[in-house]
Design a protein around this nucleic acid. Structure first.
Lengths: 181, 181
DNA sequence: AAGGATAGGGCAGCCTTGTTGACTTTCCAA
DNA sequence: TTGGAAAGTCAACAAGGCTGCCCTATCCTT
């Protein structure tokens, strides 16, 4: 298992599949993810929030009016965990939780002006880094980056990711189809 | 700031730098990182360890005999935080902490057989996913993936990352007197 | 030989953000 | 009307970050 021992008949060089290359990719992913979160983390620290707050603000911005359950599924955490974060955002006047119209058990989540302002500040910081990296690497590299990231996701997660793209302002929730918690 | 308003005179299409594309990249990074850690997380949970244990095992494997301080710098955490994790690994007989030869204040970290076995199991699980993603995306996409990840790192982190590459079995730390590791 | 600097570690205690379990409110269907 | 299911909330615990302070052993310089 030290080096990929499968010179698959097909022509192309498979050197990019050696264990060493894979391991370098794993390390790059680890370091890059730390860099990726570093800028918003600084802002969050100022105001006593954490990454979980940023994530909630992001997906509420992405899909205004989504329910707690829908947000839960996107984030892949338990509702208790999300609830704590959401409660502080609501108490601090960044998120508005409205009783659902079609189902009064549901809460529909929107950002307040203050919430929009913070979300924008956080996103801008994060986007600046990603934009710089994209610009430095060029469009072809970016296409490859996206391809590999998507190929890393499993089926259910990929579906969630694509659902965000395809239904930019649509509720994700109502499908009864079972998805694990 | 909604869409990149800089049609830089230079020719290429800059559509890959729109805020929308950047945001998709950010979301892809978020989901992919979750997928990326999912497989080892399952194994770690079985035995009551966390990601921090995996990271320590990884970098000790990467650079056997490295000191606590060197590991600290690679991981970017505090001594106290690392120490808790390292202590359990040593107590459980996965890591061996030997007094340094050239400097007896230092502790040189090695994996035991048991440690090697666990690290291999964790790495194999993670590599399997990355390898599958690489294979699916192809060598050109992988090159782009790596380019973007490196472009995301800041200078110091990039230096650390490259130091791992260039000195695969060398101490990262002070190099007082050159002695075999 | 003495004193400061460095490597490593321990303890106390804080925070965020995961987790499970138990609970209320609301809806819907038998 | 009643009972189950679903949405959301509250309580308590754990992992693993963090800081602060203290301690020993070991270097290294004076």
């Amino acid at each position: 298992m030290r080096n990929d021992p499968h010179p698959i008949p097909g022509g192309e060089s498979l050197l990019f599949l050696t264990d060493d290359q894979i391991r370098r990719g794993i390390e790059a992913m680890y370091f890059a993810y730390r860099a990726f979160t570093a800028d918003p983390d600084l802002i969050l620290e100022e105001i006593g929030y954490g990454r979980a707050h940023h994530r909630a603000l992001h997906f509420i911005t992405r899909d205004p009016g989504l329910t707690v359950t829908a947000l839960l599924e996107v984030l892949g955490v338990t509702k208790q965990s999300l609830n704590r974060v959401l409660r502080t955002l609501i108490e601090d006047g960044l998120v508005d939780s409205r009783v659902g119209r079609r189902d009064r058990r549901e809460r529909q989540l929107h950002l307040t002006e203050k919430g929009v302002a913070l979300e924008r500040r956080l996103s801008e910081a994060q986007r600046a880094r990603v934009r710089a990296a994209y610009r430095a690497a060029g469009p072809q590299a970016v296409a490859g980056f996206r391809q590999v990231l998507e190929a890393m996701m499993d089926g259910e997660m990929l579906a969630q990711f694509r659902a965000l793209r395809e239904a930019p302002d649509q509720r994700l929730a109502p499908r009864r189809a079972g998805s694990a918690g």
